[in-house]
Each structure stands twice: as C-alpha cells, then as structure tokens.
C-alpha cells in the first residue's frame, strides 16, 4: 500500500472517529434537552379503551398471563400517581380485564379491592372485585375473609360481615381468627347468645 494512500486513510478514519464522537455528544445533549420539555400525556389513555378481557384474550396468542402481568404492573403505577384526575373511573374495567386474562391472579383482586376501598373510597366496588376473585377462585378463603374485614371495620355492617365470614368458614384452610371475628360481628349486632356459641 503506498505511504500517501495509507496516511490519507488514517486521516479520514481519524476524521470519522471525531465526527462520530461529535454526533454522539450532540444527540446525547439533544436527549437531555428533549427530556426537559414537559409533554402532556393522558396517563393510561391507551388502557381505558382496551376491549373486554374475553376479546383481548384472543389477541394475546397464548400470552394472556403475560399481558395480565403487564396490565397489573401498569395499574399499580397508574394508581400510584395522585395527579391523575378521576383515575378511579376505570378501576373496575381494568381489574375485570386482568381477571379475565388471568383468573387465578390472586394479587390483582387483593390489590384492586384495596385500591377501591382505601384510595377510591368505594367499598361496594372493592366488594365486587373480591366477589369476582371468589367466583373465579372458590378455593381461596382470603377473598370473603378480607371482604368481611372491610365490612366489619370500615362500613360497620356487621350483618353483611357475618355472611362473608360464613363463606370464609365454608372454605378449607381458613385461620382460627375468622371464628372469633365472626363471633365479634354477631356480638356487635347484640346477639350475645349467638356470639357465645359462634366463638
């Protein structure tokens, strides 16, 4: 290779490397600049228009559990953002989609009900989500147990709480405290004799 050609090639390589580093610096700075500009977003806008889970399941090509995970993860982020107005409007829709995509998704019902009761202050919605969980997982005592808990300690509806405790006790594996809470619910309705027998 002639010496002149070789030095020309080296020079052009050096020029290209410098240009490469320069463009890298420029696009990294541009990235910082674009990050500084606040873009208006509709948080969760894409999810509220999702079709029902039963239709969506067809489009997941067998990855319905994966999609349920993704929507669940998204929902947690979405409901952690207190700047979103009316964010609870679609709570039931979102958790219904998750339950249809993955009916055995225990945490989704539990967390969905928790958000409904404590964040959205909608106990009825929380109960609907827990009922949905029990309907799809009849072996889980947790759903009626937690529903009874909400009714007894938040709504102070001891009669309804008794019904849910009864459902809990009809499922194997419930903890001993359920019987005592059931007795307490009966006690609160001033049926002392019944409370004594239940406990």
């Amino acid at each position: 290779m002639p010496k002149r050609y070789s030095s020309e090639k080296n020079f052009s390589t050096l020029f290209l490397v410098v240009l490469l580093l320069l463009t890298c610096g420029v696009f990294m700075n541009l990235k910082i600049a674009t990050d500084r500009i606040m873009r208006k977003k509709v948080p969760g806008s894409s999810i509220i228009y999702l079709p029902k889970g039963e239709y969506l399941k067809f489009a997941t090509f067998g990855y319905s559990s994966f999609l349920a995970d993704m929507i669940y993860l998204w929902a947690i982020q979405y409901y952690s953002d207190y700047t979103i107005p009316d964010s609870y409007q679609y709570l039931e829709h979102i958790f219904t989609i998750i339950s249809e995509l993955d009916p055995q998704y225990f945490d989704a019902y539990d967390v969905g009900a928790f958000i409904a009761v404590y964040e959205a202050q909608d106990l009825e919605l929380g109960l609907r989500i827990l009922d949905m969980g029990l309907e799809k997982n009849p072996q889980e005592f947790w759903f009626p147990y937690i529903a009874a808990h909400y009714l007894q300690f938040i709504k102070k509806d001891h009669e309804m709480a008794q019904e849910y405790y009864k459902k809990t006790m009809s499922i194997e594996g419930y903890p001993p405290i359920v019987r005592r809470l059931y007795a307490d619910a009966i006690f609160k309705t001033t049926d002392y004799k019944g409370a004594w027998q239940a406990g």
Binding site: T13, L16, V17, L19, L20, T23, C24, V26, F27, L30, K31, A33, T34, I37
Partner: peptide, 19 residues
C-alpha cells in the same frame, strides 16, 4: 429537538457503519 435528535442519531449510526 426530536427532528435534530433523529438526524444526529442516524448520522452517528451511519458513520459507525462506514467505519
């Protein structure tokens, strides 16, 4: 900024490809 970002990133990749 987005247009410039696109142009410079593309340029960067093309230079890398050329090298």
């Amino acid at each position: 900024y987005s247009i410039l970002y696109g142009v410079f990133y593309t340029l960067f990749v093309l230079i890398l490809a050329l090298l």
